[in-house]
Design a protein around this nucleic acid. Sequence first.
DNA 1: ACCTGAACACCGTTCAAGT
DNA 2: ACCTGAACACCGTTCAAGT
Lengths: 228, 228
Amino acid sequence: MTNKSKREIISRRDRPAKAPLSRDVIIATALNIIESEGWSGLSLRKVATALDTGAASLYVYVDNLQDLHSLMLDRALGAIRLPEPAVTNWRDRLKVILVSYLHLLYEKPGLARIAMSTMPSGANYLRIIEHILAALKEGGIEDDKAAWGVDLLTLYVTAVAAEQSSRDDQAEVVNQADQALRQVSALDFPLVFALKEQMLSGEGDVRVDWAIDVMINGILATPLPAHE
Amino acid sequence: MTNKSKREIISRRDRPAKAPLSRDVIIATALNIIESEGWSGLSLRKVATALDTGAASLYVYVDNLQDLHSLMLDRALGAIRLPEPAVTNWRDRLKVILVSYLHLLYEKPGLARIAMSTMPSGANYLRIIEHILAALKEGGIEDDKAAWGVDLLTLYVTAVAAEQSSRDDQAEVVNQADQALRQVSALDFPLVFALKEQMLSGEGDVRVDWAIDVMINGILATPLPAHE
DNA sequence: ACCTGAACACCGTTCAAGT
DNA sequence: ACCTGAACACCGTTCAAGT
């Protein structure tokens, strides 16, 4: 794309012919903004300004801010590479999928918050669910349990990312919370006091890995409640 | 408090002597607003108006909106009644605590969203953590695992409530997502198609109960990663 | 059909001025 | 010390008017 531009920059008239608006370019611009300015830097007005137009113009392509959010999420989900089925055992494959999803949400910090407040329904999301279900079935987990299990696993991953993302957004408040935990009264809360270091410790990845194992093992070990 | 008011309402002058501002009254007012108008109805300006003053006046008692949020959360958490230790077995007690927490977040819908974006650090939160740790220890779960387990369990409960709460806030979008799931292509996503009913089914409480069991069983069954 | 500017009805936060 | 009005720098969304 950038080759052949060696020649000479052809000076365009006053404005560079202004790239035409489209749903795609709006989504792409919004993702750029969230990447460089974070969740709180995203607004329809900023997207519009970046596209050299007014906010009102976006409403031809996007229903509202909420709609833009879910479009952004599904677009971003498209970047996830899913492991070939049967290339490894189901458990490792499941972990790879969930960790990929988690890392995507980590990368663009605002995205996690979007994922938490939006029910994703796009094709890219369905593709991920499909692969998770396949792994669970291969693990011998019965259908009904797999359906509920997928929910539990994805909700956890989304929540971890969202929590992390609000940590980034407001470092002071979080440190305040960590401080509070460190200074907890040994008399009033002896167990919290004794375990505070462990509660604050653990690199994210090790902890998430453990939590995913916990849920997989739990799903395997826990029967569904009996229908009445 | 309301007795003895039978007498006669003493007519106060022009304005009712205007209740003095205080941190407490600000928090209480904010909780009232969130209860009656939901998350999106809460703003510092509305709290101020309800207290018959300007938004600027609140800044004497509250650092900013974020600060008010966490004060609200800890205040609300104070309403949770924790079961007496040793009154039932640890597992049931643990479930009661988590379900109480969940139901509190359900009741005042905006609260779940606050809980998701705020690291609670108040005394009422610590009290809850303390009781959860006690239950886990009684269940024979070693210290380090209990510390991580508490995190997993509370994060899940908070996330479920937050998800539910954004469902309430934007019914149309959710129905759109449910519709999308119902109309999923059997060719492209065969497993999702086959399991879509199960994924949408399950009264919240049964599902949450199952998920909590899954996590408890998983914690019991999953060793921590080895330290290096 | 698409784009636009202006307006509407809001926000959180700061600040100089009052008591 | 506390309270206030006004201002600042923003929001999402709608609408009449233009092309």
